[in-house]
């Protein structure tokens, strides 16, 4: 555990809590892509199956459980409790365009051809692209509430901090997880355009982020 990894995990947790509380407090999931949230729940489910097979640390186990519970709770809020506010019209990204290639790649490129390893690889690849329905929705409607942009900022920051963690781990312990690193770089690149808009429009401006 190093400072980049810890900051990354905290950033990830903050992002998920921001989104959950936004929906909970406002009793609305307007502007939120339910599809992205289902994909993230799928990411955590397929990655954390090792909860049943290995014990890493209490921290590791607790964080995994928290991520799982919060991701399913968020999906529940969007599709059940506050489904009346769900904007299915604009949440029209075709997720099969992500799931099919990601599944295929997980079978082709993995550390071991076992069910758990293929599912772990699937989760790493899927996480890299899971935000696309949300970014697509923002592009389609042309705007995002500032609280939604804070969520996206922390979610993007998390993987960027993991990149620093991987550089650190490579130099200190020779650790190099090729699948995670390559996917993490791709994932972070997806947020770069958003980071730019976030700094120039949300932080320097006020209220909503609207696209030109």
């Amino acid at each position: 555990m190093n400072i980049f990894r810890l900051a990354g995990d905290v950033s990830h947790l903050v992002a998920i809590i921001i989104l959950f509380l936004k929906i909970w407090k406002s009793k609305s999931c307007a502007g939120i892509s339910g599809k992205s949230q289902v994909l993230f729940a799928l990411v955590f489910t397929s990655r954390y199956l090792d909860l049943f097979t290995v014990f890493i640390s209490a921290y590791n186990t607790i964080m995994k459980l928290v991520f799982l519970v919060l991701s399913y709770a968020t999906v529940y809020l969007i599709y059940m409790r506050f489904r009346g506010s769900y904007d299915s019209e604009n949440d029209s990204f075709r997720v099969e365009f992500l799931l099919v290639p990601v599944t295929g790649l997980a079978f082709l490129e993995n550390y071991a051809f076992t069910p758990l390893e293929i599912l772990w690889t699937f989760s790493i690849f899927l996480e890299a692209v899971a935000i696309m329905p949300q970014l697509f929705m923002i592009t389609k409607t042309g705007e995002a509430e500032s609280i939604t942009t804070h969520y996206l900022f922390f979610l993007g920051l998390y993987r960027a901090l993991y990149l620093a963690n991987w550089v650190w781990r490579y130099h200190t312990e020779g650790f190099f997880d090729q699948i995670a690193v390559v996917s993490g770089v791709v994932q972070t690149i997806f947020y770069c355009d958003f980071f730019y808009l976030y700094v120039t429009r949300v932080l320097r401006g006020s209220g909503k982020m609207s696209l030109p």
Binding site: R5, D9, H12, R47, D50, T53, V54, I56, N60, M63, K64, F67, Y111, A112, E117, W120, Y162, N165, F175, F176, D177, Q178, I179, A180
Partner: peptide, 10 residues
């Protein structure tokens, strides 16, 4: 490629 199992990151 480098093998890292079990995965100790989140």
């Amino acid at each position: 490629h480098a093998l890292k199992i079990p995965h100790d990151e989140l």
